[in-house]
């Protein structure tokens, strides 16, 4: 079966423990992280994570959990299927 991947993006003000809190939720959902990259752009924390959601049915539940976390931390957290980035940025 083809791997289904999603991208978790976290944007907002830098603070202690962002990655820890996001990855905790992913671990609780038994979602494997395939790749992670993080940078500070003009004082803004930006993190991008590629996760494996092949066996994960309820993407919306995960979106909701991460959105709630984002709200608590004052960050924007999106989860989107990777294909959309593939379509827009790779020919």
């Amino acid at each position: 079966m083809e791997q289904k991947r999603a991208i978790v993006s976290v944007i907002g003000k830098d603070q202690v423990g962002i990655i820890a809190k996001v990855t905790t939720i992913l671990a609780e959902e038994t979602i494997n992280i395939l790749d992670i990259s993080q940078t500070i752009l003009q004082d803004f924390f930006t993190m991008m994570m590629i996760i494996d959601v092949t066996k994960y049915e309820d993407l919306e539940a995960l979106q909701q959990k991460l959105a709630d976390l984002g709200e608590a931390l004052g960050l924007t957290i999106n989860v989107q299927l990777e294909d959309i980035f593939q379509a827009m940025h790779r020919v």
């Binding site: 993006s9 990259s37 991008m48 989107q80």
Partner: peptide, 17 residues
């Protein structure tokens, strides 16, 4: 990583802003 952070940001910016 397949994508650069700025590419990801571009897609998100296009939608959200």
């Amino acid at each position: 990583m397949n994508f650069a952070v700025n590419e990801m940001m571009e897609t998100i910016r296009m939608v959200q802003m």
